[in-house]
Design a protein around this nucleic acid. Structure first.
Lengths: 202, 202
DNA sequence: CGTTGCATGTAAGGTGTTACATGATTAC
DNA sequence: GTAATCATGTAACACCTTACATGCAACG
Protein backbone atom coordinates (compact mmCIF):
# COMPACT_ATOMS: atom_id res chain seq x y z
CA UNK A 1 0.00 0.00 0.00
CA UNK A 2 1.37 3.41 -0.93
CA UNK A 3 1.40 6.34 1.43
CA UNK A 4 -0.42 9.41 0.27
CA UNK A 5 1.93 12.22 -0.59
CA UNK A 6 -0.75 14.71 -1.45
CA UNK A 7 -0.74 16.01 2.07
CA UNK A 8 2.87 15.68 3.16
CA UNK A 9 3.98 15.94 6.75
CA UNK A 10 5.16 19.37 7.62
CA UNK A 11 8.20 19.81 9.75
CA UNK A 12 9.64 22.35 12.12
CA UNK A 13 11.19 24.50 9.41
CA UNK A 14 9.70 27.78 8.34
CA UNK A 15 8.93 26.78 4.77
CA UNK A 16 5.22 25.98 4.57
CA UNK A 17 4.41 22.53 3.30
CA UNK A 18 7.98 21.32 3.68
CA UNK A 19 8.30 17.54 3.61
CA UNK A 20 9.87 15.76 6.56
CA UNK A 21 12.87 13.80 5.33
CA UNK A 22 15.77 12.02 7.02
CA UNK A 23 19.13 13.78 6.92
CA UNK A 24 20.39 11.25 4.40
CA UNK A 25 17.81 12.44 1.86
CA UNK A 26 19.00 16.02 2.38
CA UNK A 27 22.55 14.81 1.90
CA UNK A 28 21.64 13.35 -1.49
CA UNK A 29 19.84 16.55 -2.39
CA UNK A 30 22.90 18.44 -1.19
CA UNK A 31 25.08 16.55 -3.64
CA UNK A 32 22.66 17.54 -6.38
CA UNK A 33 23.01 21.14 -5.20
CA UNK A 34 26.73 21.04 -6.00
CA UNK A 35 26.66 19.43 -9.40
CA UNK A 36 24.12 19.66 -12.20
CA UNK A 37 22.99 16.37 -13.67
CA UNK A 38 23.99 13.19 -11.90
CA UNK A 39 23.04 9.54 -12.15
CA UNK A 40 22.45 7.47 -9.04
CA UNK A 41 25.73 5.77 -9.71
CA UNK A 42 27.60 9.07 -9.78
CA UNK A 43 25.94 10.22 -6.56
CA UNK A 44 27.17 7.05 -4.94
CA UNK A 45 30.69 7.94 -5.97
CA UNK A 46 30.24 11.43 -4.55
CA UNK A 47 29.35 10.03 -1.13
CA UNK A 48 32.52 7.97 -1.30
CA UNK A 49 34.71 10.98 -2.05
CA UNK A 50 33.99 13.04 1.02
CA UNK A 51 30.64 12.54 2.72
CA UNK A 52 31.61 9.14 4.09
CA UNK A 53 34.29 10.71 6.29
CA UNK A 54 31.85 12.62 8.44
CA UNK A 55 28.40 11.39 7.68
CA UNK A 56 27.42 8.50 5.57
CA UNK A 57 28.32 5.89 3.00
CA UNK A 58 25.02 4.47 1.85
CA UNK A 59 24.15 1.30 0.00
CA UNK A 60 23.68 1.75 -3.72
CA UNK A 61 20.10 0.60 -3.45
CA UNK A 62 19.29 3.34 -0.97
CA UNK A 63 20.53 6.05 -3.29
CA UNK A 64 17.99 4.94 -5.88
CA UNK A 65 15.25 4.82 -3.27
CA UNK A 66 16.07 8.32 -2.05
CA UNK A 67 16.16 9.66 -5.60
CA UNK A 68 12.75 8.21 -6.27
CA UNK A 69 11.38 9.79 -3.13
CA UNK A 70 12.97 13.15 -3.91
CA UNK A 71 11.36 13.10 -7.32
CA UNK A 72 8.02 12.00 -5.88
CA UNK A 73 7.91 14.98 -3.52
CA UNK A 74 9.04 17.34 -6.27
CA UNK A 75 12.51 18.18 -4.97
CA UNK A 76 14.27 16.67 -7.99
CA UNK A 77 13.46 15.92 -11.59
CA UNK A 78 14.93 13.24 -13.78
CA UNK A 79 15.18 12.47 -17.43
CA UNK A 80 16.47 9.63 -19.50
CA UNK A 81 19.56 10.48 -21.50
CA UNK A 82 21.63 8.49 -23.93
CA UNK A 83 25.32 8.63 -23.20
CA UNK A 84 28.11 8.84 -25.75
CA UNK A 85 28.31 5.06 -25.76
CA UNK A 86 24.67 4.72 -26.70
CA UNK A 87 23.63 3.48 -23.28
CA UNK A 88 20.60 4.90 -21.52
CA UNK A 89 20.81 6.33 -18.04
CA UNK A 90 18.68 8.45 -15.76
CA UNK A 91 20.08 11.79 -14.63
CA UNK A 92 18.70 13.83 -11.75
CA UNK A 93 18.60 17.58 -11.19
CA UNK A 94 17.52 19.48 -8.10
CA UNK A 95 14.32 21.47 -8.66
CA UNK A 96 13.50 24.97 -7.52
CA UNK A 97 11.26 23.60 -4.79
CA UNK A 98 14.12 21.28 -3.84
CA UNK A 99 16.58 24.14 -3.52
CA UNK A 100 14.08 26.07 -1.43
CA UNK A 101 13.41 23.09 0.84
CA UNK A 102 17.10 22.26 1.20
CA UNK A 103 17.93 25.85 2.07
CA UNK A 104 15.12 25.89 4.59
CA UNK A 105 16.43 22.69 6.11
CA UNK A 106 19.99 24.03 6.33
CA UNK A 107 18.76 27.30 7.76
CA UNK A 108 16.04 26.26 10.20
CA UNK A 109 15.80 22.59 11.07
CA UNK A 110 17.42 21.63 14.40
CA UNK A 111 20.66 19.70 14.10
CA UNK A 112 20.51 16.06 15.15
CA UNK A 113 22.97 15.06 17.87
CA UNK A 114 26.01 13.20 16.53
CA UNK A 115 25.72 9.43 16.45
CA UNK A 116 28.46 7.68 18.37
CA UNK A 117 28.66 3.91 18.00
CA UNK A 118 32.17 2.91 18.86
CA UNK A 119 32.69 -0.84 18.66
CA UNK A 120 36.24 -0.60 19.92
CA UNK A 121 35.24 1.30 23.05
CA UNK A 122 32.48 -1.27 23.56
CA UNK A 123 35.05 -4.08 23.49
CA UNK A 124 37.23 -2.27 26.02
CA UNK A 125 34.19 -1.72 28.22
CA UNK A 126 33.75 -5.51 28.21
CA UNK A 127 37.47 -6.00 28.78
CA UNK A 128 36.88 -8.32 31.71
CA UNK A 129 35.67 -10.92 29.20
CA UNK A 130 38.65 -10.90 26.83
CA UNK A 131 42.36 -11.51 27.12
CA UNK A 132 44.65 -8.47 27.35
CA UNK A 133 46.25 -9.58 24.07
CA UNK A 134 42.96 -9.54 22.22
CA UNK A 135 42.13 -6.12 23.63
CA UNK A 136 45.46 -4.76 22.52
CA UNK A 137 44.99 -6.19 19.03
CA UNK A 138 41.52 -4.68 18.75
CA UNK A 139 42.68 -1.21 19.76
CA UNK A 140 45.79 -1.41 17.57
CA UNK A 141 43.66 -2.38 14.58
CA UNK A 142 41.39 0.58 15.29
CA UNK A 143 44.40 2.90 15.53
CA UNK A 144 45.64 1.67 12.15
CA UNK A 145 42.19 2.04 10.59
CA UNK A 146 41.96 5.60 11.89
CA UNK A 147 45.37 6.30 10.39
CA UNK A 148 44.25 5.03 7.01
CA UNK A 149 41.04 7.07 7.18
CA UNK A 150 43.13 10.10 8.11
CA UNK A 151 45.25 9.71 4.99
CA UNK A 152 42.22 9.22 2.77
CA UNK A 153 40.41 12.20 4.29
CA UNK A 154 43.47 14.37 3.80
CA UNK A 155 43.65 13.27 0.18
CA UNK A 156 39.99 14.23 -0.27
CA UNK A 157 40.55 17.55 1.43
CA UNK A 158 43.35 18.42 -0.96
CA UNK A 159 41.14 17.41 -3.88
CA UNK A 160 38.31 19.76 -2.96
CA UNK A 161 40.60 22.53 -1.70
CA UNK A 162 41.24 24.09 -5.08
CA UNK A 163 37.72 23.97 -6.49
CA UNK A 164 36.14 27.43 -6.56
CA UNK A 165 32.88 27.54 -4.62
CA UNK A 166 33.71 24.49 -2.55
CA UNK A 167 35.17 26.29 0.43
CA UNK A 168 32.65 24.79 2.84
CA UNK A 169 33.34 21.33 1.54
CA UNK A 170 36.95 21.88 2.43
CA UNK A 171 36.01 23.01 5.93
CA UNK A 172 34.03 19.80 6.41
CA UNK A 173 36.97 17.82 5.06
CA UNK A 174 39.26 19.62 7.46
CA UNK A 175 37.00 18.63 10.33
CA UNK A 176 37.16 15.01 9.14
CA UNK A 177 40.97 15.07 8.93
CA UNK A 178 41.21 16.36 12.48
CA UNK A 179 38.60 13.88 13.63
CA UNK A 180 40.54 10.86 12.38
CA UNK A 181 43.78 12.28 13.73
CA UNK A 182 42.02 12.49 17.10
CA UNK A 183 40.68 8.97 16.75
CA UNK A 184 44.19 7.68 16.16
CA UNK A 185 45.45 9.66 19.12
CA UNK A 186 42.67 8.38 21.38
CA UNK A 187 43.48 4.81 20.36
CA UNK A 188 47.13 5.40 21.21
CA UNK A 189 46.23 6.73 24.62
CA UNK A 190 43.88 3.80 25.17
CA UNK A 191 46.75 1.44 24.42
CA UNK A 192 48.85 3.23 27.00
CA UNK A 193 46.02 2.92 29.53
CA UNK A 194 45.68 -0.79 28.80
CA UNK A 195 49.42 -1.25 29.25
CA UNK A 196 49.34 0.57 32.59
CA UNK A 197 46.45 -1.58 33.75
CA UNK A 198 48.21 -4.78 32.69
CA UNK A 199 51.42 -3.69 34.41
CA UNK A 200 49.57 -2.95 37.64
CA UNK A 201 48.25 -6.50 37.60
CA UNK A 202 51.57 -8.16 36.91
CA UNK B 1 4.52 -15.76 12.39
CA UNK B 2 7.38 -16.66 14.69
CA UNK B 3 10.83 -17.44 13.42
CA UNK B 4 12.21 -20.83 14.29
CA UNK B 5 15.00 -20.60 16.82
CA UNK B 6 15.67 -24.29 16.95
CA UNK B 7 18.36 -23.94 14.33
CA UNK B 8 19.94 -20.56 15.02
CA UNK B 9 22.26 -18.81 12.59
CA UNK B 10 25.87 -19.43 13.36
CA UNK B 11 28.35 -16.60 13.21
CA UNK B 12 32.02 -16.11 12.61
CA UNK B 13 33.05 -16.77 16.20
CA UNK B 14 34.63 -19.99 17.34
CA UNK B 15 31.84 -21.08 19.65
CA UNK B 16 29.80 -23.69 17.82
CA UNK B 17 26.12 -22.87 17.48
CA UNK B 18 26.61 -19.27 18.53
CA UNK B 19 23.68 -17.03 17.64
CA UNK B 20 24.26 -14.00 15.42
CA UNK B 21 23.18 -10.91 17.29
CA UNK B 22 23.62 -7.17 16.78
CA UNK B 23 26.17 -5.43 18.99
CA UNK B 24 23.36 -3.81 20.95
CA UNK B 25 22.16 -7.21 22.14
CA UNK B 26 25.67 -8.00 23.34
CA UNK B 27 25.73 -4.64 25.09
CA UNK B 28 22.59 -5.55 27.02
CA UNK B 29 24.06 -8.94 27.84
CA UNK B 30 27.24 -7.13 28.87
CA UNK B 31 25.31 -5.08 31.39
CA UNK B 32 23.89 -8.30 32.79
CA UNK B 33 27.47 -9.59 33.03
CA UNK B 34 28.32 -6.79 35.46
CA UNK B 35 25.34 -6.94 37.74
CA UNK B 36 23.25 -9.86 38.93
CA UNK B 37 19.50 -9.43 38.61
CA UNK B 38 18.19 -6.46 36.70
CA UNK B 39 14.82 -5.36 35.37
CA UNK B 40 14.49 -3.89 31.90
CA UNK B 41 13.97 -0.54 33.52
CA UNK B 42 17.22 -0.81 35.45
CA UNK B 43 19.13 -1.86 32.34
CA UNK B 44 17.83 1.25 30.66
CA UNK B 45 19.30 3.31 33.47
CA UNK B 46 22.62 1.50 33.09
CA UNK B 47 22.86 2.47 29.46
CA UNK B 48 22.28 6.06 30.52
CA UNK B 49 25.07 5.99 33.09
CA UNK B 50 27.99 5.19 30.81
CA UNK B 51 27.22 3.25 27.64
CA UNK B 52 25.52 6.22 26.01
CA UNK B 53 28.78 8.16 25.95
CA UNK B 54 30.50 5.81 23.55
CA UNK B 55 27.93 3.47 22.15
CA UNK B 56 24.24 3.61 22.59
CA UNK B 57 21.22 5.01 24.32
CA UNK B 58 18.34 2.80 23.28
CA UNK B 59 14.61 3.27 23.47
CA UNK B 60 12.95 1.60 26.42
CA UNK B 61 10.92 -0.59 24.12
CA UNK B 62 14.02 -1.99 22.50
CA UNK B 63 15.48 -3.08 25.81
CA UNK B 64 12.43 -5.25 26.40
CA UNK B 65 12.65 -6.67 22.91
CA UNK B 66 16.32 -7.52 23.33
CA UNK B 67 15.70 -9.12 26.70
CA UNK B 68 13.00 -11.31 25.20
CA UNK B 69 15.32 -12.36 22.41
CA UNK B 70 18.18 -13.07 24.81
CA UNK B 71 15.89 -15.27 26.85
CA UNK B 72 14.54 -17.00 23.74
CA UNK B 73 18.04 -17.98 22.61
CA UNK B 74 18.97 -19.08 26.10
CA UNK B 75 21.49 -16.37 26.95
CA UNK B 76 19.46 -15.01 29.82
CA UNK B 77 16.80 -16.25 32.19
CA UNK B 78 14.11 -14.28 33.93
CA UNK B 79 11.80 -14.68 36.82
CA UNK B 80 8.97 -12.71 38.31
CA UNK B 81 9.74 -11.23 41.70
CA UNK B 82 7.71 -9.22 44.11
CA UNK B 83 9.51 -6.11 45.31
CA UNK B 84 9.40 -4.71 48.82
CA UNK B 85 6.47 -2.55 47.79
CA UNK B 86 4.41 -5.54 46.73
CA UNK B 87 4.75 -4.76 43.02
CA UNK B 88 5.67 -7.46 40.53
CA UNK B 89 8.59 -7.07 38.20
CA UNK B 90 10.65 -9.27 35.92
CA UNK B 91 14.35 -9.60 36.65
CA UNK B 92 16.90 -10.99 34.22
CA UNK B 93 20.12 -12.92 34.81
CA UNK B 94 22.79 -13.90 32.31
CA UNK B 95 22.96 -17.68 31.82
CA UNK B 96 26.02 -19.88 31.52
CA UNK B 97 25.48 -20.18 27.78
CA UNK B 98 25.11 -16.41 27.69
CA UNK B 99 28.42 -15.86 29.44
CA UNK B 100 30.09 -18.28 27.07
CA UNK B 101 28.58 -16.63 24.00
CA UNK B 102 29.39 -13.13 25.23
CA UNK B 103 32.99 -14.12 25.94
CA UNK B 104 33.24 -15.69 22.52
CA UNK B 105 31.90 -12.51 20.98
CA UNK B 106 34.33 -10.30 22.86
CA UNK B 107 37.22 -12.62 22.04
CA UNK B 108 36.59 -13.57 18.42
CA UNK B 109 34.01 -11.58 16.52
CA UNK B 110 35.44 -8.85 14.26
CA UNK B 111 34.91 -5.31 15.50
CA UNK B 112 32.47 -3.18 13.51
CA UNK B 113 33.88 0.07 12.15
CA UNK B 114 32.81 3.10 14.19
CA UNK B 115 29.65 4.84 13.02
CA UNK B 116 30.14 8.52 12.24
CA UNK B 117 27.03 10.58 11.57
CA UNK B 118 27.88 14.14 12.30
CA UNK B 119 24.97 16.45 11.66
CA UNK B 120 27.03 19.54 12.41
CA UNK B 121 29.71 18.65 9.86
CA UNK B 122 26.91 17.96 7.38
CA UNK B 123 25.54 21.47 7.90
CA UNK B 124 28.98 22.99 7.38
CA UNK B 125 29.42 20.91 4.23
CA UNK B 126 26.21 22.56 2.98
CA UNK B 127 27.41 25.94 4.17
CA UNK B 128 26.74 27.56 0.82
CA UNK B 129 23.02 27.24 1.58
CA UNK B 130 22.96 28.94 4.98
CA UNK B 131 23.94 32.28 6.37
CA UNK B 132 27.29 32.57 8.14
CA UNK B 133 25.39 33.48 11.30
CA UNK B 134 23.35 30.30 11.24
CA UNK B 135 26.49 28.25 10.66
CA UNK B 136 28.24 29.88 13.57
CA UNK B 137 25.23 29.25 15.81
CA UNK B 138 25.07 25.60 14.79
CA UNK B 139 28.75 24.98 15.49
CA UNK B 140 28.64 26.94 18.75
CA UNK B 141 25.67 24.90 19.91
CA UNK B 142 27.57 21.73 19.06
CA UNK B 143 30.61 22.97 20.98
CA UNK B 144 28.44 23.64 24.02
CA UNK B 145 26.75 20.25 23.74
CA UNK B 146 30.14 18.56 23.57
CA UNK B 147 31.19 20.49 26.66
CA UNK B 148 28.13 19.30 28.55
CA UNK B 149 28.72 15.72 27.44
CA UNK B 150 32.33 16.05 28.55
CA UNK B 151 31.25 17.07 32.04
CA UNK B 152 28.71 14.28 32.26
CA UNK B 153 31.18 11.68 30.99
CA UNK B 154 33.77 12.86 33.50
CA UNK B 155 31.19 12.55 36.27
CA UNK B 156 30.44 8.99 35.14
CA UNK B 157 34.13 8.18 34.96
CA UNK B 158 34.65 9.27 38.53
CA UNK B 159 31.65 7.22 39.60
CA UNK B 160 32.95 3.96 38.15
CA UNK B 161 36.59 4.70 39.00
CA UNK B 162 36.40 3.44 42.56
CA UNK B 163 34.36 0.29 42.01
CA UNK B 164 36.53 -2.82 42.29
CA UNK B 165 36.41 -4.95 39.15
CA UNK B 166 35.27 -2.08 36.95
CA UNK B 167 38.69 -1.03 35.70
CA UNK B 168 37.76 -1.57 32.06
CA UNK B 169 34.60 0.45 32.47
CA UNK B 170 36.77 3.28 33.64
CA UNK B 171 39.04 2.92 30.61
CA UNK B 172 36.01 3.17 28.33
CA UNK B 173 34.81 6.19 30.30
CA UNK B 174 38.23 7.75 29.95
CA UNK B 175 38.03 7.28 26.19
CA UNK B 176 34.64 8.99 26.21
CA UNK B 177 35.92 11.94 28.24
CA UNK B 178 38.77 12.47 25.80
CA UNK B 179 36.42 12.00 22.87
CA UNK B 180 34.10 14.79 23.98
CA UNK B 181 37.04 17.03 24.82
CA UNK B 182 38.21 16.47 21.26
CA UNK B 183 34.73 17.15 19.89
CA UNK B 184 34.66 20.47 21.71
CA UNK B 185 38.12 21.28 20.43
CA UNK B 186 37.20 20.38 16.86
CA UNK B 187 34.14 22.63 17.09
CA UNK B 188 36.32 25.47 18.32
CA UNK B 189 38.71 25.02 15.43
CA UNK B 190 35.80 24.85 13.02
CA UNK B 191 34.57 28.19 14.36
CA UNK B 192 38.01 29.66 13.74
CA UNK B 193 37.96 28.29 10.18
CA UNK B 194 34.51 29.77 9.59
CA UNK B 195 35.70 33.12 10.90
CA UNK B 196 38.73 33.06 8.60
CA UNK B 197 36.55 32.23 5.63
CA UNK B 198 34.10 35.02 6.47
CA UNK B 199 36.94 37.51 6.91
CA UNK B 200 38.44 36.57 3.54
CA UNK B 201 35.12 37.36 1.92
CA UNK B 202 34.65 40.68 3.61
C1' DC C 1 38.04 -13.72 -22.66
C1' DG C 2 37.86 -12.33 -17.98
C1' DT C 3 37.71 -8.48 -14.79
C1' DT C 4 36.45 -4.03 -13.65
C1' DG C 5 33.43 -0.30 -14.09
C1' DC C 6 28.97 1.62 -15.39
C1' DA C 7 24.17 1.40 -14.53
C1' DT C 8 19.55 0.25 -12.33
C1' DG C 9 16.68 -1.67 -9.73
C1' DT C 10 13.47 -5.29 -6.52
C1' DA C 11 12.60 -8.06 -2.43
C1' DA C 12 13.18 -9.30 2.02
C1' DG C 13 14.56 -8.58 6.32
C1' DG C 14 16.88 -6.58 10.35
C1' DT C 15 17.45 -2.68 13.48
C1' DG C 16 15.59 0.73 15.99
C1' DT C 17 12.31 4.62 16.88
C1' DT C 18 7.93 6.92 18.15
C1' DA C 19 3.41 6.71 19.64
C1' DC C 20 0.30 4.56 22.35
C1' DA C 21 -1.49 2.24 26.47
C1' DT C 22 -1.52 1.15 31.37
C1' DG C 23 -1.00 1.57 36.20
C1' DA C 24 1.22 1.66 40.83
C1' DT C 25 4.36 4.13 44.18
C1' DT C 26 6.96 7.94 46.03
C1' DA C 27 8.19 12.65 46.85
C1' DC C 28 6.82 17.39 47.17
C1' DG D 1 -3.11 16.43 44.39
C1' DT D 2 0.23 16.26 41.05
C1' DA D 3 4.53 15.34 39.30
C1' DA D 4 8.24 12.15 38.92
C1' DT D 5 9.72 7.61 39.04
C1' DC D 6 9.04 2.74 38.56
C1' DA D 7 7.53 -0.71 35.44
C1' DT D 8 6.04 -3.24 31.12
C1' DG D 9 4.72 -3.85 26.97
C1' DT D 10 2.33 -3.56 21.75
C1' DA D 11 1.82 -1.66 17.13
C1' DA D 12 3.22 0.79 13.48
C1' DC D 13 6.52 2.38 10.89
C1' DA D 14 10.96 4.54 9.27
C1' DC D 15 15.54 3.64 7.96
C1' DC D 16 18.93 1.07 5.92
C1' DT D 17 21.30 -3.21 4.54
C1' DT D 18 22.08 -7.55 2.13
C1' DA D 19 21.04 -10.54 -1.37
C1' DC D 20 19.55 -11.03 -5.73
C1' DA D 21 19.02 -9.95 -10.69
C1' DT D 22 20.47 -7.99 -15.10
C1' DG D 23 23.39 -6.42 -18.83
C1' DC D 24 26.55 -3.55 -21.60
C1' DA D 25 31.25 -1.27 -22.26
C1' DA D 26 36.02 -0.83 -21.75
C1' DC D 27 40.46 -2.48 -20.61
C1' DG D 28 44.13 -5.74 -20.50
Amino acid sequence: MQRSDTEPDTESGTEPGAVRLPATAWAVLGILSFEGELTGYEIRKWTGYLLRFFYWSPAMSQIYQELKRLERVGYATSRQVTGGDGRDKRVYVISEAGTRALTDWAENVPVEPPVVKHGTALRVWLGHLATPERLREVVEAHRDDAGRMLDEAEFSRRTVADVPGWAYQELAARWAVRHYASERDLAERMLADLETLAARRR
